[in-house]
């Protein structure tokens, strides 16, 4: 397809589709395994006081995971070379995923539970024990 330096045609040639070159597949594989090594390395080798910083450590692990996920989605799953319709569907799913976490705003801003006696009721709702029991 036009605009891609590494374009090749599928066999037959009548209908061009992007073929991910072997070199690119190896390159992405290198990135994925480097990401995996970075995830494990970061979990055990980051020095103090950063290692005790939960927010930093979790953010770093998730940043590496998102980097690896982008490599897989963008190149291996072919979104980079897909049509606009494919991109809408692909990005739509992941945007929805992040939108879902807006729900957390509810839990962080509304300390509704525990209500008195919640812990004695089987199959109760979430034990959101963020407020003092009024009794």
């Amino acid at each position: 397809m036009a605009g891609h330096d590494h374009s090749e045609l599928t066999k037959g040639g009548a209908h061009p589709h992007h073929v991910l070159p072997q070199g690119m597949i190896f390159l992405i594989a290198g990135g994925l395994f480097a990401g995996m090594a970075a995830t494990i390395g970061a979990a055990f080798m980051i020095p103090e006081p950063l290692h005790s910083n939960t927010f930093f450590m979790q953010s770093l692990a998730l940043a590496i995971a998102i980097f690896k996920a982008c490599l897989v989605v963008y190149f291996y799953m072919g979104v980079k070379f897909g049509t606009r319709l494919v991109k809408i569907f692909a990005y739509g799913g992941f945007i929805w995923f992040f939108t879902l976490f807006i729900m957390m705003a509810d839990y962080t801003s509304r300390p509704m539970e525990p209500v008195p006696g919640w812990e004695t009721v089987p199959s109760s709702a979430l034990p959101r024990n963020t407020v003092e029991d009024p009794e």
Partner: peptide, 20 residues
């Protein structure tokens, strides 16, 4: 199959490497 891989990419740090 890539999607299956994708899910595990997030499961691994979230379950096996929880920071203190």
């Amino acid at each position: 199959w890539h999607f299956v891989d994708l899910v595990w990419i997030f499961l691994y740090p979230l379950f096996y490497l929880i920071p203190r």
